[in-house]
């Protein structure tokens, strides 16, 4: 575990140079989730095991016998990441080892098929970090809708746009009262790095929800992947915050964005998945963004 001093990193140059995700990944061009993984592992360091259910990371790590990963990666069935990590964490603890156990799962493996195991692991107080990198659809199988797909987004199974809202995973996690939970976004690697560091310094079940824009799935040019993440935050669609022992604090980049959010259209315009969005849906999306901002702001103020 890392102490408080070690977590104080104020600029990107302070992030360790060691690489645990090599350049030979099989990720798509412009993949933001592999970018996130790179920073997650830099924060976690070498005494770390990654537990990966079926998701893009199953592919990104490469094909046997090759691997792009420089930490042990335990691949496990779709619904099983949190439970497998539970057993692993207990075993390391029984052996007196302090190895970090990090489950790294996509949104489908988290909000849909994996949510039962996730809920169980958090209820039991498992000492591990669960990271959901959220590209808002089943990307690995070619972009089918997941429970995390936002309202209006076209996927291969919602060709007319998703008629229902994105499942609010974070409120589900919050209901388990974990000692630490946070949101992050691939466009803000330093923020992500610090949150992973802090999470791993705390005993118990920790959760980080990363928005990870996906060029082929969201249908935007690969070079826009960082910009897309920034727009998600600037429009208030994705709010960066952390909740430590129940106390919420909004992270720097979102603090400004929430006061004066950029127009939602800035975020939506560049994504093919929101093409031909009807005005009523767009209006509903605006309302949801506004309500979300208000709710988070109220919670930080201690009003709710």
């Amino acid at each position: 575990m890392t102490n408080i001093v070690e977590r104080s990193v104020t600029n990107l140059s302070a992030i360790p140079k060691e690489e645990y995700l090599y350049k030979c990944t099989s990720a798509c061009a412009g993949c933001s989730s592999s970018l996130c993984l790179r920073y997650v592992l830099k924060a976690a360091g070498p005494d770390t095991v990654l537990v990966v259910p079926a998701c893009c990371t199953s592919v990104i790590q490469g094909i046997y016998p090759g691997t792009a990963m420089n930490v042990p990666v335990y691949n496990v069935a779709f619904a099983a990441a949190a439970a497998c990590a539970s057993g692993m964490s207990e075993a390391f603890s029984a052996m007196g080892r302090e190895t970090n156990v990090i489950a790294y799962a996509g949104d489908g493996g988290t909000v849909d098929i994996g949510i039962q195991a996730l809920s169980g692991a958090f209820e039991r107080g498992t000492n591990f970090l669960y990271i959901c990198y959220d590209n808002e659809a089943y990307g690995n199988t070619g972009m089918q809708r997941s429970g995390s797909t936002p309202l209006g987004a076209r996927t291969t199974t919602t060709p007319g746009g998703k008629p229902t809202a994105k499942k609010d995973l974070d409120r589900i996690i919050a209901a388990h009262n974990p000692p630490y939970m946070a949101t992050a976004c691939s466009a803000y690697p330093l923020d992500l790095y610090k949150k992973v560091k802090k999470a791993l310094s705390i005993e118990g079940p920790k959760f980080i929800h990363i928005l990870a824009p996906c060029p082929p799935g969201w249908r935007y040019p690969t070079e826009k992947t960082v910009e897309m993440g920034k727009l998600a935050v600037k429009t208030g669609t994705w709010i960066l915050y952390e909740r430590e022992f129940g106390k919420l604090s909004i992270s720097g980049p979102s603090r400004a964005a929430m006061k004066r959010p950029a127009p939602l259209e800035d975020y939506i315009r560049g994504q093919g998945r929101f093409k031909n969005l009807d005005p009523a849906t767009l209006d509903l999306m605006r309302q949801q963004v506004r309500q979300n901002i208000e709710r988070i702001a109220r919670e930080e103020e201690g009003v709710c």
Binding site: P46, D47, T48, V49, S58, V59, Q61, G62, I63, Y64, T67, M69, N70, V71, P72, V73, Y74, N75, V76, M88, T99
Partner: peptide, 14 residues
């Protein structure tokens, strides 16, 4: 699992 000798377990396999 040995973090000093990292391996991939059950990755994509041809």
């Amino acid at each position: 699992i040995d973090t000093e000798n990292p391996c991939g377990y059950g990755p994509m396999t041809g």
